[in-house]
Nucleic acid binder design. Sequence first.
RNA 1: GGAGGGAUUCCCGAGUGGUCAAAGGGGACGGGCUGUAAACCCGUUGCGGUAACGCUUCGAAGGUUCAAAUCCUUCUCCCUCCA
Length: 413
Amino acid sequence: MGVFKELQDRGLINQVTDESLAKRLDTESFPHYIGFDATASSLHIGSLATLLTMRRMQDAGHKPIVLVGGGTTMVGDPSGKTEMRKMLDKTDIAENARKFHKQMSKFIKLGDGPSDGVIVNNAEWLMDLNYIEFLRDIGKHFSVNRMLTAESVKLRLEKGLSFLEFNYQLLQAYDFLHLFQTMDCRLQMGGSDQWGNIVAGVELIRRVCGKEAYGITFPLITKSDGQKMGKSEAGAIWLDPELTSPYEYYQYWVNVEDNDVIRFLNYFTFLPLDEISKLAELQGEELREAKRVLAYEVTKLTHGEEEAQKAEKAAQAAFSGGNEIDPNADIPTVEIKAEDLKEAIPLAKLMASTGIASSGKEAKRLAMGGGVTVNGDKAEGPQHPISLELADAHGQIILRIGKKRYHRIRVID
RNA sequence: GGAGGGAUUCCCGAGUGGUCAAAGGGGACGGGCUGUAAACCCGUUGCGGUAACGCUUCGAAGGUUCAAAUCCUUCUCCCUCCA
């Protein structure tokens, strides 16, 4: 099956600049690029579908070019934003760009081979641009009338749009032109909010070089309740295990809503389509199996097989009914000195001091609402005494908050 | 440059001298029901304190007052209209 068809069947295609691209992708090699802004120091799952799409393209023999927006991030894309984006200074952006390398290499193969991915930073060619030259060579191809009709600009005209941001489209179009000229990059992909910017690049290339380039956009991936991906009670779900542990990451995915599982299997895994359609037949409670598969597969892609297995085991231990938690299970853990527990301390205090609850008030509320369990027994209230005797043979006490959040208190000497 | 409007707790948004830690909604969290789902119902939602109570908060800094989110002064930022 052609890669385009595959992407389409998985629901990953929103718009294409030219339908003929579907066939051409099967016969020609298309170096293609996707831009990532460099504002976040680590990628979160909002970018995951995009990263995996690059991987799918690479598997089909197309060279991925990851463009880190080191230069454009200093301007701020108005598309899809209601307010001006925070500008970062050069050192922050450079630092973020470095972290990108590490993250990207998990998803695409980087290197010098014909279909190996490369990472480029547009600061390299944008920072030295000469204003007059740029206006003359690039600016002349853009019509302000036309730009003003763009949906993203229209929206911002109501709230206010700075001249700086208004220029973003030119810079992004210029990026595409530059990559086209230097790396034969003939395809740009991006979120549906990038359509206008991508088309601008395609047109610029046609005007300047008289050649054809292409664009594909992905649909905006939302949860069935309309929320954007990637937020949870704990904040964003990051791909970096330092920021979101594999266990939490796994938990995010097992906890998706029924209505989302099958879509997400398509978007976020490499499972063959017929296997997914089998899972799609599951009904009601059985869907948990589909969620398990989803969580395992995505965790494996992001953190590797070993971490995925650990996360799965920890989840089973915690949710299969038994109160026994595997002493090695990978659940959030805090340590406390044995001497601090010699005298029993109130539950709420412990929760606050270990950071399990964000404040004493918070801890108290949870305990009072009956939401805290100590080693499987419901805590009587904020004053519920926690002492050394509660620690099991492994020196640990398991706190459960709500139905899903587990914390291990490990007693150390 | 001129005229006017605005900034409130995570978000939206009420509040024009005491009864305001601040209505209402959203979100989030906890409980119930379930399937680690959704929907629904109940509760909580500044910090400290077992509590009584105390402390800090309404763009920033000063001031008036027994008492200020509310009045005055200066400053910062935002918006609208005119140029």
